[in-house]
Amino acid sequence: MYVLIGGAGMMGLGLAQQLLTLGHTVAIIDSDPLACRFAREKIGVMAFEGSAVSTTVLLEAGIRQANAIVAALRDDALNLALITLSRSYGISHIVVRMGDREFLEAYRLAGASHIISTIDLAVATMANAIEYPQVESMMHFEQGQVEVLKLPVPGNCFVAGRSVAQIAQDSAFPKGSLIIGYQSHTHANLQIPNGNTVLEAGSTILVVTRPESVHKMIDYLGIQASHLPTLEVSHPNL
C-alpha cells in the first residue's frame, strides 16, 4: 500500500516509521526542509518539501497512485483542506489527526474515513492510567464509541479459573462486551480465545466494551482504583 502523509511532525514521522516496518511504501510532505531530510536519511521514506495542500506538490508526491492519505498537519484547517483535495483525486481512505473537536463535523462532511482526536485519546488514557494503574493500555475507536482494554486477571479475581463462556453468561458481565484476546503470561503469545478458554490468575485479557461500561468492566474483574492520599494545600493570607 502506498501511504502519503501530510506533516512531518512527531506523529507523522512516527507513523511513517511504523508503516515502513509493516511493509508499506510511504511518502511524507512537509514545508520544513530539515524534517524532510530527517525523514529521508533517518527513517528511509520518500519526503517532498512543500505545502501538503499544494496541488503541485501533491501530484509530485504521487497522490494519484496513493491508496491512503494521512492528514497529520499541525493545523486543523490545513488538514481539512488536505482531506478535500484528497477526495478530489479519488482517495477514499483518509485518516486525519484532529486537534480541535470543533472540526469534527467538518471532517466528517469533508469525507475523512477515520478521525483521531489526539487530545481526547491522551486525556482519557492518562485519566484511566492515574485511576487504574493496573490497566496497561487503552485504545479508542469510532471517535470514542468503542474501547479496547488490556486488563490483568488478579489472583483473587472472580473470573480466575472460569471459562470465557461462563463469564459471557454471567449477568454481571457488562452487556455488549467481548473478550477478544488472551495472554496466559507476560512472555506468552496473544491468542484468540474460544468459549472453552479458561482465564488463569495472573493472565491478561483484551476486552472490547462501550465507554460507559469501562469502569463496570474494571470493577467486574476486581481491579481496585488507585486512591492516593489527597494533598492538602494551604493558602496563606497575603
Rank of each mutant, 00 (worst) to 15 (best):
S31V: 14
D32V: 14
D32N: 15
P33S: 09
A35M: 01
A35N: 05
A35R: 10
C36L: 06
C36G: 08
C36W: 03
R37N: 07
R37F: 02
F38Q: 01
K42F: 04
G44R: 01
G44Y: 06
M46H: 11
M46G: 00
M46A: 14
M46R: 02
G50T: 08
V53G: 01
V57E: 08
L58H: 08
L58C: 06
L59P: 08
Q65V: 12
I69K: 08
A71H: 08
A72K: 10
A77C: 00
N79P: 02
A81C: 12
I83P: 00
L85N: 07
L85I: 15
S88Q: 13
Y89P: 12
I91W: 01
I91H: 02
H93Q: 12
I94R: 08
V96K: 02
M98T: 09
M98N: 04
M98Y: 11
D100M: 00
R101N: 13
F103R: 04
L104A: 11
L104Q: 04
E105A: 14
A106R: 04
Y107Q: 00
Y107K: 10
R108W: 07
R108C: 01
G111E: 09
A112R: 02
A112E: 03
H114C: 09
I115D: 07
I115T: 05
I116P: 05
S117R: 00
A122G: 12
A124V: 12
T125D: 12
M126Y: 10
N128A: 07
N128V: 02
A129W: 02
I130D: 02
Q134L: 10
V135G: 01
M139H: 09
F141G: 12
F141Q: 04
E142A: 15
Q145L: 02
Q145G: 04
V146N: 11
E147C: 11
V153G: 00
P154R: 06
N156D: 15
R162D: 04
V164K: 05
A168R: 12
A168S: 09
Q169G: 06
Q169P: 03
D170T: 05
S171Y: 05
